[in-house]
Amino acid sequence: MSDTKEYTLYNDKVMDHFMNPRNMGDIQDADGVGEVGAAACGDIMKISLKIQDGKIQDARFKTFGCGSAIASSSMATELIKGRTIEDALKFSNQEVVDALGGLPPVKIHCSVLAEEALKAALEDYVKKHPEAVEHAETAATK
C-alpha cells in the first residue's frame, strides 16, 4: 500500500492495550479469583486480585477473547489497582470504555466481561473473608 497511514480495527489506545497488555498473568497466592465467560461470543476472562487492608494491591488478568476483550481486561486491571473493595464493587464497564477512548458497539460486551470478571473475583474474596468486609458483603450479594 502506498499510503503511510496505519489502518487498524480499533483506536490507538485499544491497540496499545491489546499489543502491550498491562497486568497480564496470574497472582500466585491471590486473595480472590474470578473467571467468567460471555454467552454472546464464548470468550472467557479471568481476573486475580491481591487485597490488603481492604484495598486492591494488585490485579492480573488472563483472557481468551477478542482484541477488545484483551484490551478491556488490561485497562480494567489498571483502573482497579489501589481502590477499596467498596469502590471496586461499584466499578462499571463504562469506565473501561471511556478509558479506552470508546469501543465499537458490537464490542461493548467485552468491557462488560471485564466488569464481571472483576466482580466475580471480589465475590470470591468476600466469600473467603466475610469478616474483612462486612458491609461490602451486603453490597456484593445485592
Binding site: 473467571e35 467468567v36 465467560g37 454467552a39 464464548g42 472467557i44 466481561l113 464481571e116 466475580a120
Partner: peptide, 13 residues
C-alpha cells in the same frame, strides 16, 4: 468448562 463459567455470568446478569 465454558458453559460452567458462562453459567456464572447468566446468574449475575
Amino acid at each position: 468448562h465454558a458453559a460452567a463459567v458462562s453459567g456464572h455470568r447468566e446468574e449475575r446478569s
